[in-house]
């Protein structure tokens, strides 16, 4: 009897394992099937266009001949191409830095507002991020309008000179970065606010007992605790800002004298407006290695966070 029980028990373990494995396999099959529509959608809307643009980038202007890397070699020789790279980097880096700084500071302010009124502030501060950027950029365009800028109206009222917001290269660069910061800072704010709320209060209390001042609390507690979220947010925003199109397109269309073009606007001008799809595809593909590196860091960071958790 006992043997029978042992035998039965001995047999029952592998059987349970087998059924568990089967279930797991079954579960992953179900999961795959459920994810299949999304995978198909991504394949159709992301992978296929990406491969197609790779194919386009290897054709000549009339799309009749394979030219290999000829289009890339052509671009390397163009002065404007290098200018666009420089401008895109300036645009993306400065916008992301300012967005991160502003988001960090404002998140602290909001965090310190009593819970009762905090929701209102959070809602209001998110407004720039929830308005479609094409619409809000149009409103900014009117504020910067070459002839009827509301900002200039105020400046001249207080006895200052009007500013050529979109007419002078430096001011135009400043304006496109400003609008990008205005639009993107709330994203940082909300991410940082969430991170701040997850920092245990006891750490600050312990630091206070040890005599830490405000700055030391930020440096030794807040920043290390928010490190991962800061990294992810910055890298994510870098990708989005590098690929930005609408703000530059609406505000300056790349002008004056091409001094505000970024990859996306120049690619559009060459490919769609200029009828040179291969060259346009080629320009837009230059974003790929840069964004690929950023994506690698995001994924690596997410993995690390997962391991730490």
């Amino acid at each position: 009897m006992a043997n029978g029980v042992v035998q039965a028990a001995g047999l029952s373990v592998p059987r349970r394992r087998r059924s568990g494995r089967r279930l797991a396999r079954h579960k992953s099959t179900i999961a795959f099937l459920m994810a299949l529509p999304l995978i198909a959608l991504i394949a159709a809307l992301v992978i296929y266009p990406a491969l197609y643009s790779l194919h386009l980038a290897t054709l000549n202007k009339s799309m009749e001949r394979f030219v290999g890397l000829g289009n890339f070699a052509f671009l390397f020789k163009r002065e404007l191409f290098w200018m666009v790279i420089k401008q895109t980097v300036i645009f993306a880096l400065s916008a992301v830095i300012f967005k991160a700084l502003i988001g960090f500071v404002v998140a602290h302010f909001v965090h310190n507002i009593p819970a009762k009124g905090q929701r209102k502030w959070r809602g209001m501060l998110l407004v720039p991020w929830v308005i479609p950027p094409a619409m809000s950029t149009l409103a900014w365009f009117w504020l910067f309008d070459p002839s009827y800028s509301a900002f200039n109206w105020v400046l001249t009222r207080v006895g200052l000179d009007a500013v050529p917001w979109l007419g002078e290269p430096l001011w135009a660069r400043f304006s496109v970065i400003l609008v990008n910061v205005w639009y993107g800072a709330p994203f940082f704010l909300i991410m940082y606010l969430a991170a701040l709320k997850s920092v245990p209060e006891q750490l600050y209390e312990a630091a206070a007992i040890d005599g830490a001042n405000w700055w030391q609390k930020i440096w030794y507690i807040t920043l290390p605790m928010m490190r991962n979220i800061i990294a992810i947010t910055v890298l994510f925003s870098l990708i989005v800002t590098f690929a930005n199109f609408d703000i530059v397109r609406i505000l300056t269309n790349g002008g004056p004298i091409d001094q505000t073009h970024v990859f996306a606007t120049w690619a559009f001008q060459l490919g769609i407006e200029g009828g040179d799809l291969p060259l346009g595809a080629c320009v837009s593909l230059f974003m790929f290695p840069i964004l690929g590196v950023a994506a690698y860091f995001i994924l690596r960071d997410i993995n690390r966070r997962g391991t730490e958790a």
Partner: peptide, 21 residues
């Protein structure tokens, strides 16, 4: 010409005339 003409789009000149300026 007005100093900001380098930043004009296709609507800027219309507004400029219609405003009376």
């Amino acid at each position: 010409l007005p100093p900001d003409v380098f930043a004009w789009d296709d609507a800027s000149n219309n507004r400029y005339l219609i405003s009376g300026q």
